[in-house]
Design a protein around this nucleic acid. Sequence first.
DNA 1: AATGAATGAGTATTCATTCAT
DNA 2: TATGAATGAATACTCATTCAT
Lengths: 195, 195, 195, 195
Amino acid sequence: MRNKKPKYNQIIEAAVAVIAENGYHASQVSKIAKKAGVADGTIYLYFKNKEDILISVFEEKMGQFIEKIVRGTSQLDSADDKLFTLIEMHFRQLSEDHHLAIVTQLELRQSNTKIRLKINQVLRPYLIVIDDIIKEGAREKVFRDNLNIQLVRQMIFGTLDEVVTNWVMKEQKYDLVQQAWEVHAFITHGLSANK
Amino acid sequence: MRNKKPKYNQIIEAAVAVIAENGYHASQVSKIAKKAGVADGTIYLYFKNKEDILISVFEEKMGQFIEKIVRGTSQLDSADDKLFTLIEMHFRQLSEDHHLAIVTQLELRQSNTKIRLKINQVLRPYLIVIDDIIKEGAREKVFRDNLNIQLVRQMIFGTLDEVVTNWVMKEQKYDLVQQAWEVHAFITHGLSANK
Amino acid sequence: MRNKKPKYNQIIEAAVAVIAENGYHASQVSKIAKKAGVADGTIYLYFKNKEDILISVFEEKMGQFIEKIVRGTSQLDSADDKLFTLIEMHFRQLSEDHHLAIVTQLELRQSNTKIRLKINQVLRPYLIVIDDIIKEGAREKVFRDNLNIQLVRQMIFGTLDEVVTNWVMKEQKYDLVQQAWEVHAFITHGLSANK
Amino acid sequence: MRNKKPKYNQIIEAAVAVIAENGYHASQVSKIAKKAGVADGTIYLYFKNKEDILISVFEEKMGQFIEKIVRGTSQLDSADDKLFTLIEMHFRQLSEDHHLAIVTQLELRQSNTKIRLKINQVLRPYLIVIDDIIKEGAREKVFRDNLNIQLVRQMIFGTLDEVVTNWVMKEQKYDLVQQAWEVHAFITHGLSANK
DNA sequence: AATGAATGAGTATTCATTCAT
DNA sequence: TATGAATGAATACTCATTCAT
């Protein structure tokens, strides 16, 4: 497998660090190579081009991010618990890795439209998890059953994403995880069956 | 009045069109000049540099966008009506100007940090409108009164923004304005006083 | 006559000031126009192009410079007196007009080869004065009579010019006119008939 | 050794040729690169920017020029011999490299103030050689002992420089080296102890 | 004569990618 | 595998000059 090779991971980690420290537009391939301790040309033995590095960064990092949330929520029994855990883990994971938070919330968004479409693909499994929770909540009658699932998923993701982005832009000065309660309340109220 | 400077507006309109059609990174000054029907050098009689064009595009367009919403909501009496109108106008205005929607939701986000900070400044009045509606709702007892206003505002803005972005990315194939009802329901439920 | 027009002289004077204050390369036509109190386009009613302004500056200013020296030396009877007067007046005139000294010694030399060839034409009458002094000195037997006049003239001019340039580059901190004695001694010894 | 970096020298030589043939202002980096047989970008592996190329041209070429004169004069015993050799070598070296003569006498003088200050630094060792010869001549009693050394050095350098510049401007149509005798006579007479 | 808004040609530099070793 | 020297495409901005008024 591709990621069995240690240099592959070195380059991914170097890319995250370089982007977080220098910003997207100042992150040259040569800088990433230097940080990774390899020659510029070596990068191209592991990645097709610069775009491929960026997409791979997102794939690897968000892959783990999502997988943890999938595992964390799958053991739970109620939609409500699952939703809270999803929010809490979303916030916690980014809280615990500031570099990753900067890269995903701010820097990678400066990439061109092509990369961002690819990023959306990587996010799909996460969106499916959200969809499943919504459906489960509807089955459990804690959420309304006439919800437009796609729209609701967008609203939930948009809510979480903006809250995290604000936290990053305010330089992570306050406790993000602590906000999970209120965000959870907002969403569950928003979707609740009884007015 | 602005139409005393017809070239200024020509350039702004040309910039929106060029960015929407070519993408942020492929929007050369010369392309904007050509579209505006002026010489390259003329751009620099009206704008300090390329950055200034982009910031001005946002200022002019979002300025009008926000002003209309401010006016539209100010005549209403309840927080609930105001919130619905805000959502509906937010969606309608971007629905009616696809170029602008592409530029604000996708392209301008690729800009560098300096431009994005400026963009945040321009958005501030909009965020204040949202804050005021939240406060008014709390006074009216239709919203909970222990809300963290900053957080709620982020959640509302994130919700709207993500819904619009999805609509743009799906190439505006469906009716965005129609979704205002459900988004409004989600948010008002989310903030409602009674569980 | 061309220079009967007051604006012509305004522009010439403005050009000298602008070049002396900003340096050759930062002396845009628009800056000169502003300093002269006329519109950019007006410049072109009096001068063919920017090159013509610069050449005219040199013509006008060096024309006066040379004419004074011609008059000053013509009343004298010996080559030796004439030579001293030429040196003294050369130094004095530039000493008394620092702007002109900066422009002729430093800034105008940054102009392109075409302008500098033209400048050499303007200097020709001055070189003829030098030639005549050399010939007169030879007739008077105070200078050697087998001198290569062209070469001697170059050496004399080079000597004066470099002394003035050094004085300008050292920011006119010492008295240039005072050096006329030693320069005169150097040249007259250098040309003297008896070893 | 410098020939370990063949590209560095290729670029220097190309720069001299391009400047001599096209003039200072028409010497684009791309032209130099083409002449040197390298890509435009390669220039920037060896030089910081265009200014750095020009300064390096002068440093390299004038460095050799001066070093040869230092070596040539150091083996001689009298100030008179040294002065003659300095003049002869000055003229001979520029005679033998017309491109270099054009570049140093005409083109590089069009450069901006920053480059010209750097050029003055490079020339300093040459001026010190002249100073030393003047002092030695004074000790030997062949030159006057009350000379203002700085002024004399300026006069000598100005003399040589103007003679060379005239030769270059007259398109090198006559023999420059042959003039060394008369220039030497002018200077030694000019400085001689006995009237 | 005078204006000044408009013009548009011209160029240094960066950096992702290649390929000979 | 790994290297890193070399490549070369791509672009914002200035300013001398024009010309409609």
